[in-house]
Simulated scan of single mutants.
Amino acid sequence: MILEAAMLQVKQGKEKEYEEAFHTASKIISSMKGYISHELQRCMEVEGKYLLLVKWEKLEDHTIGFRQSIEYQEWKKQLHHFYDPFPVVEHFETINLSCE
């Protein structure tokens, strides 16, 4: 399992509109092959700041399967105009640490 993490900064005054658009766009990402789950968190200290976490079965499900799809073009159309600056997206994998 891969965790995609993106810190999102939404343009001032657009937060409510963004949250509504994200709710609609969520149907796009959740229909993709390899998608497991996602959540959007709103920062309590910084207005307009969000954390997006998406779980994928494997890295390529996001970087190729989603990012190179027609569905991604619609995702971009619905959401990317809200961001300033454009977010950095990073991927993480679980480290299995044993306490034996």
Rank of each mutant, 00 (worst) to 15 (best):
D84L: 09
Y50F: 09
E90V: 06
K58Q: 14
S37L: 02
M32L: 15
A6C: 12
Y18V: 11
S98H: 06
A5E: 13
L53N: 05
V46R: 13
K49L: 04
F82C: 06
A21N: 03
A6M: 07
I36D: 03
L40S: 11
I29T: 10
A21I: 01
F86A: 13
E100L: 06
F66A: 08
S31C: 11
L79T: 00
E19G: 02
K16Y: 14
F66K: 03
W75N: 01
R67K: 13
D84S: 15
D84R: 05
L8T: 00
S31W: 05
C43M: 09
M44K: 06
T63G: 12
E4N: 14
L51K: 05
E45N: 14
E57D: 11
H62E: 06
K76M: 08
H81E: 08
P85T: 10
T94H: 07
E93G: 09
I64M: 03
H62K: 08
L79Q: 10
E93L: 06
E20Y: 04
L3T: 11
R42I: 08
G48D: 03
K14N: 13
F22A: 02
L79I: 05
P87T: 05
I64S: 10
H38Y: 07
L52P: 01
K55T: 13
L8R: 08
R42C: 02
E45D: 12
E74A: 09
E17R: 01
K76D: 04
E71I: 02
Q9F: 08
T24P: 04
H23I: 13
V54M: 03
Q9I: 06
V46S: 07
K55V: 04
Y35C: 12
V10D: 01
H38P: 09
K55A: 05
M1H: 14
F22H: 09
L51D: 11
E90K: 15
E47F: 00
W56S: 07
I36Q: 08
A21W: 00
G34S: 13
I95S: 04
Q41L: 13
E57W: 08
F86M: 09
E71Y: 02
G13M: 15
P87G: 01
H91A: 05
Y72S: 00
L8A: 12
P85H: 10
K58I: 07
